[in-house]
Computed example of a mutant assay.
Amino acid sequence: MCKVISIANQKGGVGKTTTAVNLGIGLAREGKKVLLIDADPQGSLSASLGIGEPDEIKTTLATILMNIVNENNIDPEEGIYHHEEGVDLLPGNIELSVMELTLANVMSREMIMREYIEIQRERYDYIIIDCMPSLGTMTINALVASDSVLIPVQAAYLPVKGLQQLIKTISMVKRRLNRRLTIEGILLTMVDFRTNYAKDVSSKVRETYGTNIPIFESVIPVSVKAAEASAEGISIYGHCANCKVATAYKELTKEVLNDGK
């Protein structure tokens, strides 16, 4: 049975894309069939998986969504890239910004991405959606299409402070549009445990949210290796399989496979 996970936070630079890549490829390394969907106009996920110029791609998530809006037939293979590390990718690019405006005038606009996801569910074990850093129409579409939301949070005060709005939005989507939606967990990222500051923030997150929301035991350490891997268009496993950040993403993968248990 397929599980659809959105990776979301309206704050940029918290490790959403890095987590999408390394969780997705981590799951593929465990024998799972995985589709990664780039739902960010910046195309960061696409670039991180080796697509040099996302804005020049002919068929992207925006193309597929427009076909659904126009009630055209959808080929499940259309636009899919097959990455060397065993995951499939539906790229995204700047055209998604136009889609945000287009969907404003579409009936049941929050449901468009779900139509595509339902077509793909029988083909994959996991579908992971890398959301844009906002709570706009495209992110709402991703939440409506998903079974759960994974929330990466940088171990710093301002990103943690913004969590409340995201949790409120997730609750609203669950109540009005997607009853099955749950929070997969909060993932602490860019953690430097050499500093008291990071330790204090991490403790504060667990104290504030840990009672009601799952918080992953795995934490992602601050590391230049992750950025280097993205620049090469590969995962952290392909770049530096034995480094601390690779180990952390392996542990996160295990937690997701075990539903946090």
Results as ranks from 00 to 15, higher is better:
residue 186 I to E: 03
residue 176 R to K: 15
residue 195 T to I: 08
residue 181 L to S: 03
residue 200 D to E: 14
residue 200 D to M: 11
residue 210 G to Q: 04
residue 205 V to P: 02
residue 186 I to F: 07
residue 208 T to A: 03
residue 190 M to G: 01
residue 185 G to Q: 06
residue 186 I to D: 00
residue 195 T to Q: 06
residue 201 V to E: 00
residue 205 V to D: 02
residue 200 D to N: 12
residue 196 N to P: 03
residue 195 T to F: 09
residue 203 S to G: 11
residue 182 T to K: 15
residue 183 I to G: 04
residue 202 S to I: 10
residue 210 G to T: 03
residue 183 I to D: 02
residue 193 F to E: 09
residue 210 G to R: 07
residue 180 R to C: 04
residue 189 T to W: 05
residue 175 R to N: 13
residue 183 I to N: 05
residue 176 R to C: 02
residue 184 E to C: 12
residue 204 K to S: 11
residue 205 V to W: 01
residue 178 N to A: 04
residue 193 F to P: 00
residue 176 R to V: 12
residue 207 E to P: 00
residue 204 K to A: 12
residue 201 V to W: 02
residue 185 G to C: 10
residue 209 Y to F: 15
residue 195 T to M: 05
residue 199 K to E: 10
residue 205 V to F: 03
residue 198 A to M: 04
residue 173 V to G: 00
residue 193 F to M: 15
residue 186 I to Y: 05
residue 194 R to F: 07
residue 192 D to T: 08
residue 182 T to N: 14
residue 182 T to D: 13
residue 194 R to W: 06
residue 202 S to L: 09
residue 193 F to L: 15
residue 198 A to P: 02
residue 190 M to I: 13
residue 202 S to V: 15
residue 203 S to A: 14
residue 188 L to V: 09
residue 177 L to E: 00
residue 206 R to G: 04
residue 183 I to K: 06
residue 212 N to H: 12
residue 173 V to Y: 07
residue 207 E to T: 05
residue 200 D to H: 09
residue 175 R to V: 02
residue 186 I to Q: 04
residue 176 R to H: 12
residue 187 L to P: 08
residue 174 K to H: 12
residue 202 S to C: 14
residue 203 S to H: 10
residue 187 L to H: 05
residue 185 G to F: 08
residue 200 D to R: 11
residue 181 L to K: 07
residue 175 R to M: 14
residue 195 T to V: 10
residue 192 D to Q: 07
residue 174 K to N: 12
residue 197 Y to G: 00
residue 188 L to Q: 10
residue 189 T to M: 09
residue 200 D to V: 10
